[in-house]
Structure formats: structure tokens, C-alpha cells
């Protein structure tokens, strides 16, 4: 008959039979621990931060975030910033301002109305560029061809 196992009769070992750690493990461990605790001492500037409680630190982080957002909005120029305008565009600025002053409803009404031709050859000839011969390069067609091309445009679709 088999004798039942009893722990107090089993030879007691001082340690469980596990593989030993690497040979020089205990020689190196103090150095490794000292390396890890060293840098924490070298940074006393933010020591006050660690002394704060966790909720206070969270509140402080939130306030800093808010302040940085506010500063960003305050410092950035309002409205879209564009690249420096080209020479032609600089000339067109007064016209653009005048157009901006026209109420939107009135502008739409004008564009939808059939009263008179909307674009004339004189309009096309009036370019806001210094080189007046430039238009001749881009518009080599005759007056009749240009007029025909303009008439073919579905005006409603174009303006809307």
C-alpha cells in the first residue's frame, strides 16, 4: 500500500527548485538599481510638482491647456491671412471692396436679370494689368467669335 504524502515528512528545501539567476546577477543588481534611482534626484526643479496631489496636478494641466489655447487665439491674426497680393490683384483691390459693399441679394438679382448684356467686349478689354497687350495673346479671336462664345454660355448655371 502506498504511503500517503505528508508535507512534514517530505525533505524541506530552503528554496523551491527553480533555476538560479544568471551568475553575476547579484553583483550587477545594485548598480542597476542605483542607475534607476540616480536621475530622479538630478531633477529637483520640478520637485514641487510631485509634491502636489493628483487632482491638483490634473487641474493645473487643464488650466495650462486652456491658457495655451487662449494665447494661440489671441496671438494669431483674425481672418484669413493671404500671401502678398500680386501686382494685378493689388490693382483690383478697390473694385473688390466696392463689390463687397453691394448687398448679396442685390448682386444675385443683378446676375439673374436679363436686362442688357452682362459682359461686353469693353469689359473683356479692360484688364487690370500693366501690360495691355497681354489680352491680345490670350484672346486671339475676333469680336464676332467672342460674342458667339459668350452667347453660348448657359448664363443661369454660370452665375448660380
Amino acid at each position: 500500500m502506498k504511503t500517503p504524502f505528508r508535507l512534514d515528512e517530505h525533505p524541506r528545501r530552503p528554496l523551491p527548485p527553480l533555476a538560479s539567476p544568471p551568475e553575476d546577477y547579484f553583483q550587477q543588481l545594485p548598480r542597476r538599481v542605483m542607475q534607476r534611482v540616480g536621475p530622479a534626484e538630478a531633477a529637483p526643479r520640478l520637485g514641487w510638482l510631485t509634491a502636489l496631489s493628483a487632482p491638483l496636478r490634473t487641474a493645473l494641466a487643464a488650466v495650462l491647456l486652456l491658457v495655451s489655447f487662449a494665447a494661440a487665439f489671441w496671438l494669431l491674426p483674425t481672418g484669413p491671412t493671404a500671401a502678398p497680393p500680386l501686382a494685378g490683384a493689388r490693382l483690383a483691390l478697390p473694385a473688390a471692396r466696392a463689390l463687397a459693399a453691394v448687398p448679396r441679394a442685390e448682386a444675385v438679382q443683378y446676375l439673374l436679370s436679363d436686362a442688357g448684356p452682362r459682359v461686353t467686349l469693353a469689359d473683356l478689354a479692360d484688364t487690370h494689368v500693366a501690360d495691355h497687350d497681354l489680352a491680345a495673346d490670350f484672346l486671339p479671336g475676333t469680336s464676332a467669335e467672342i460674342q458667339a462664345a459668350l452667347d453660348e454660355q448657359p448664363s443661369l448655371d454660370v452665375y448660380l
Binding site: P16, L18, P21, Y25, F26, L29, P30, V33, M34
Partner: peptide
């Protein structure tokens, strides 16, 4: 301080390691 802590680690490292390892 560093010297004292180094000695503390040397004194208890084996016991702590085996306590954890078990």
C-alpha cells in the same frame, strides 16, 4: 546617502529576489 542605499541593496537583494521569485 548613495553609499548607504547601495549597502542596503547588497544586504537584502537576495532575500527580496527569492521572495519575489517564489
Amino acid at each position: 546617502r548613495n553609499l548607504a542605499f547601495n549597502q542596503l541593496v547588497r544586504k537584502y537583494q537576495s532575500k527580496v529576489y527569492w521572495h519575489v521569485r517564489k
